[in-house]
Computed example of a mutant assay.
Amino acid sequence: MLRDNLAPAFTLEDAREAGMRKDEVYSMLERGEIERVGRGVYVRYGELDPALLQLAAATTIRDDATLCLTSALVHHDLSDAIPFGSDIALPRGTRHPAGLTHVSWHSFDPATFHIGRELVDAGRDLRVAIYSAERTIIDCFRLMHQEGSDVAHEALKRWLRKRGSAPSALLKIAASFPKAQPRVRQALEVLL
């Protein structure tokens, strides 16, 4: 069946390429087989990690979409925040897709965009990108004026309590972010 050829998150264009007509997609929507998560973007029920649903939808539009900031902190269990939407980064200079619900778009420097970017399985072999815990902490220090100093410091404290956390690895990544590096180093000195 053509529907089985669809990825767990797909666009109308993806459905057309799989041989489906627009009215067939709308019939699936009416029957509750799929959910519309944005303009022309759909997900199949029960096939994706619910926590990564918005990121999976964003990835169908832009394969460089990357979970960042508060959403990534929550993913790495470094925050108890309950974000209303997903924080998703794209390289600065690229257009942010319109029509996705509950997404806060962020633009990161293309020169450092891929540092700490990791691929994880969102379900049914769909790979999505999330910044590592270390990169996310650095971004919180780097964007302290937006995220708040308490968010950055609390995330760092929680990360240090986790097994396997290595301050040297954090500082190595921080070296790529000259404005954040002194803040991260100072916070580590206070906490260690």
Rank of each mutant, 00 (worst) to 15 (best):
L67N: 07
E134R: 11
G40M: 09
P178S: 02
L160T: 04
V25W: 12
L69I: 07
L100D: 03
C68F: 01
H145R: 15
L191E: 13
A169M: 09
T136P: 03
L2I: 10
R117C: 05
A81L: 11
K157Y: 01
C140G: 13
W159Y: 15
D63A: 13
S86A: 15
A56D: 01
M1W: 11
D80E: 12
V37Q: 03
A169V: 11
E33C: 03
R36N: 04
L6E: 06
R183N: 11
M28T: 00
D63N: 15
A89Q: 04
A58Q: 04
E134T: 03
M20K: 06
M28N: 02
V120I: 15
V43Q: 06
V184D: 02
H96I: 07
T59P: 05
D4C: 01
E147T: 15
L2P: 15
L52Y: 04
Y131E: 01
V37N: 01
L6R: 10
E35D: 13
T136V: 05
Y131S: 01
K172T: 13
T60K: 15
A7V: 00
K157A: 13
F141W: 08
A152F: 09
V184E: 02
L52R: 06
S79E: 06
R127L: 13
A169H: 14
E30P: 01
H102Y: 12
L53G: 03
P91D: 01
I88P: 01
G85V: 03
I34P: 05
F141H: 10
L69S: 08
A155W: 04
P8D: 10
R39Y: 12
Q181E: 14
A174M: 12
A89D: 00
R135I: 04
H145K: 14
D139P: 03
L160H: 08
A166G: 08
L170T: 10
D80W: 03
R185Q: 14
K162H: 13
A166K: 15
I61M: 13
R163T: 15
H96P: 07
H153T: 14
L55Q: 10
E33H: 09
H96A: 14
K162P: 04
R185C: 02
Q186P: 00
A133Y: 02
I137M: 09
L126Q: 11
L170M: 03
R31N: 09
W105Y: 09
S132E: 05
F108R: 12
S165T: 15
E17L: 15
T66Y: 09
D14I: 05
G85K: 10
L48T: 08
I137R: 07
E35C: 03
V103I: 12
L119K: 14
L170Y: 06
E134S: 08
R183C: 01
D23P: 04
L160Q: 10
P91T: 06
M1L: 03
Y26K: 11
A187W: 02
G148S: 09
T66C: 15
